[in-house]
């Protein structure tokens, strides 16, 4: 059991290093996914199976999908197909595949030996987590829901600006509408530079 923990941890660190050092975003995303999956395994070995499931579903699933969506959104155009091809070249799959294979091996080993392995630490199951969550942390749950709502509205607002026709996707040469201000990153330019 401890061996599984250490192997998963090494995989996680390795994948993270590779994530940070990749130049290609799609490659980095692949490594990041692997890293998250490794962390999920670590969670399981630490006696938190519920968290491990959440890690896989939300992090490796939902959040990574968002990233992939955005990467795809940014690259609409004639080069897209070529870019896709170059990104998804078989060579790029090697590294993540190896790391993922290690994880699969671990998981299958765990499944095969299920019930016989004793975790090194006491397992804290979803039951206890739910009791704590809706007991002393009720206020935190409410706040988290507010945060999600705010993020939803904020992301919609920020992302839907282009619906107002101020900039168009892919029009690389058109920068005439830029000086109109109001964007978050441009607000600084409105300040008089010689304010001293």
């Amino acid at each position: 059991m401890e061996a599984i923990f250490y192997i998963a941890a090494i995989v996680a660190v390795l994948a993270t290093v590779l994530t940070v050092t990749r130049l290609n975003p799609v490659h980095a995303l692949l490594y990041l996914t692997v890293s998250l999956l490794a962390v999920a395994v670590v969670f399981y070995t630490l006696g938190a199976p519920f968290m491990a499931a959440l890690e896989v579903v939300i992090y490796a699933g939902a959040i990574m999908v968002l990233f992939v969506f955005v990467v795809m959104l940014l690259n609409l155009g004639r080069h897209t197909v070529d870019l896709e091809r170059s990104w998804l070249s078989p060579g790029a799959f090697v590294g993540p595949a190896i790391l993922a294979a290690i994880l699969v091996g671990e998981v299958s080993y765990l499944l095969a030996r299920s019930g016989t392995l004793t975790p090194p630490v006491a397992e804290v199951g979803p039951h206890q987590v739910a009791l704590a969550l809706y007991g002393p942390y009720l206020l935190g749950v409410e706040l988290a829901s507010f945060l999600l709502l705010g993020a939803l509205v904020g992301a919609y607002h920020v992302g839907s600006r282009r619906a107002q026709g101020r900039t168009t996707v892919g029009s690389r040469s058109d920068r005439t509408g830029l000086a109109s201000g109001g964007d978050l990153v441009r607000t600084g330019a409105d300040r008089p530079s010689g304010a001293a």
Binding site: M51, L54, F67, V70, V129, L133, L148, A151, R162, L184
Partner: peptide
């Protein structure tokens, strides 16, 4: 684990807004 849940929430919110800003 409860704290991890909160962090998960924060991460989800952050990534949504962050990606919108990125766009």
């Amino acid at each position: 684990q409860v704290m991890f849940l909160f962090i998960l929430t924060v991460a989800a919110a952050e990534v949504a807004v962050g990606l919108a800003l990125l766009l």
